[in-house]
């Protein structure tokens, strides 16, 4: 039986892992290589790394000198992670070209996550799917509520897109995306649960797997994304960083609610 995937998401900024809140506030929480060891040890189902470094923006390394940055060379970070990552690995953020995608895949990523470029250059989605297979092409949708309605945003939440959420998702699927990760800007770091209504709109619009992201506060939120919104996989960042034994406890909560999860632990 196919399992509901539970996916830790790690946000990279200037070679450091950060906690993100509302796509606007960031706090250093670790080094990408150390974090990989933690999640490998936890037998995570899959990992997503998203580089949210802002070109020409504030360098978060100035804020803390205790945590060692893995540096600015994202491919070098990826190579080091891939060497001991025996689970599916998605890399995303700041991708604009097929050449970048080729480099990520060649250096050990299994999939790429593309968000803004999927809107600005839709042909890229098709090129990635044709070159590397649609399973390698994860399309990201960032949603922000405006007057209560879910609106697609790009440019790390700074620019609204005119298309409706369902149409936007369907177009990504027809362009060749193999999976869609839906993140909520309002819920990011808020620990109030996923934006279930937005998730449901996407899950009903497409027939490819939909990954829920953004807003998890408790393990019950994972179950809701599956039961109430039709997500195929659930992703989260903060809850795994800041809650003790959180990954295994999340799986146990889901299993106790009757959801099929992978549970390679001694009960």
């Amino acid at each position: 039986m196919l399992k509901i995937r539970v996916i830790p998401v790690l946000f990279l900024m200037n070679g450091l892992i950060v906690r993100s809140e509302g796509f606007a506030k960031f706090q250093i929480i670790g080094n990408p290589i150390d974090e990989l060891e933690r999640y490998s040890h936890w037998l995570a189902d899959e990992l997503v790394y998203v580089d949210i470094t802002r070109e020409g923006g504030h360098d978060i390394r100035r804020e803390d000198h205790r945590v060692k940055s893995a540096g600015d060379d994202i491919l070098a970070i990826l190579r080091q992670i891939a060497r001991s990552c025996f689970m599916p690995l998605t890399f995303g953020g700041r991708i604009n070209s097929l050449e970048q995608v080729d480099a990520f895949i060649r250096n050990g990523a299994d999939k790429v996550l593309i968000n803004t470029a999927a809107h600005r250059n839709p042909a890229l989605v098709t090129e990635v799917a044709e070159t590397h297979g649609s399973q390698a092409m994860v399309a990201g949708i960032d949603v922000k509520r405006i007057d209560g309605a879910p609106v697609v945003h790009i440019d790390q939440g700074r620019t609204a897109v005119a298309d409706g959420l369902a149409d936007y998702a369907r177009r990504l699927e027809s362009l060749g995306a193999g999976e869609i990760l839906v993140n909520s800007i309002d819920r990011d770091g808020a620990a109030e649960g996923y934006d279930l209504a937005a998730l449901r709109i996407v899950a009903e619009a497409v027939s490819i797997p939909v990954v829920a992201c953004g807003g998890v506060g408790g393990f019950g939120d994972f179950c809701e994304a599956v039961d109430e919104a039709g997500a195929s996989a659930v992703a989260a960042g903060n809850v795994f960083h800041f809650t003790e034994h959180s990954y295994k406890r999340a799986k146990r909560t889901m299993r106790n609610r009757g959801l099929a999860v992978r549970y390679p632990y001694p009960s």
Binding site: M1, K3, R5, S134, G178, S232, R262
Partner: peptide, 10 residues
């Protein structure tokens, strides 16, 4: 059943 069949299966 969504395709691709993607994820962990026994």
């Amino acid at each position: 059943w969504r395709l691709p069949h993607m994820g962990w299966n026994d």
